[in-house]
Amino acid sequence: MDIVNEILEKEQKKAEKYKPITVEKHLELEIDIGTLLASDTNDLDKKLIKLDKERDAYLQSLSRDNTQLLLNKIWDLPTERIDEAIVVRLPHPTTILPRAKPVPKPKPLTKWQEFAKAKGITNKKKSKLEWDEQLQKWVPLYGFRKAAAEKEKSWLIEVPQNVNPMTDMYEKKANEKSEKVAKNELQRLKNIARARKVKIPRVGLPVTADKASASQLATATSVAKASTASLGKFQNKLPKEKEARGIGVHELIPGKVKKRNLPEVSRKNLKTIQREG
């Protein structure tokens, strides 16, 4: 029994030497270890906080107690040793803070991507380099070495049999390329408009090199007739002449579709602008 008493005494002495790490609180603290946040909802000592002399000491003791409680929780977590430092893994924070920017939305699909998805078309992976038999070297799929290789390859272009022998094949090729670029750009803009749900007007009559269809010609005459200052009101008519019909034809003919009135506010603004101007 002597040994037990001795040990107990020793422990007591040890405990007396150090200050306690326990804190008594009426209400328990809400602690979010993930953000190192503790909120104490216990009532404050109104007397002490009013007095200018006592306030700082009171706040310090209050903060000490709460810090002790927070650190007690942190020291309970399992520790790790990383490069001579003792580290604790913190749990996920429970307080949700607002973001700086909204959550990113998924990119809207382009028309082609949508179509490919519906049809189950997947991209075939093409290799970045391909062996060119004519040049006897590896040529990239795209980029500046490709352009150089292309230039090297087409030092001479044959004029086909069915083409006017005086045509400049280089110019023709360049034109084709620029057409492709323009088409691509148009499609990109169309895709943006589609994603933003903007209505885009149809673009004029299709340009055809040599032959136009009967309906296209009819549309063209209707448009041309209505393209006067009085919207074709005083133009003579041929016997049995009919106005062009079809999807989207009305929109092309001036004065055919009634313009909508401007909204109230902007009309007012318009007046003021006119007055000023």
């Binding site: 993930g34 953000t35 190192l36 946040l37 404050l44 109104k46 906080i49 706040l59 209050l62 903060s63 709460n66 810090t67 650190l71 942190i74 020291w75 520790t79 790790e80 990383i82 430092a85 003792i86 580290v87 604790v88 893994r89 913190l90 924070p93 307080t95 803070l97 607002p98």
Partner: peptide, 26 residues
């Protein structure tokens, strides 16, 4: 909290806990 919490971290060095900001609302 947003202003002073700095950033979300996975783990913390125990000796690195050395600063307390206390906000008391009367």
């Amino acid at each position: 909290v947003d202003f002073f919490h700095r950033e979300k971290i996975e783990s913390i060095r125990l000796q690195g806990l050395e600063h307390v900001l206390s906000f008391t609302a009367s």
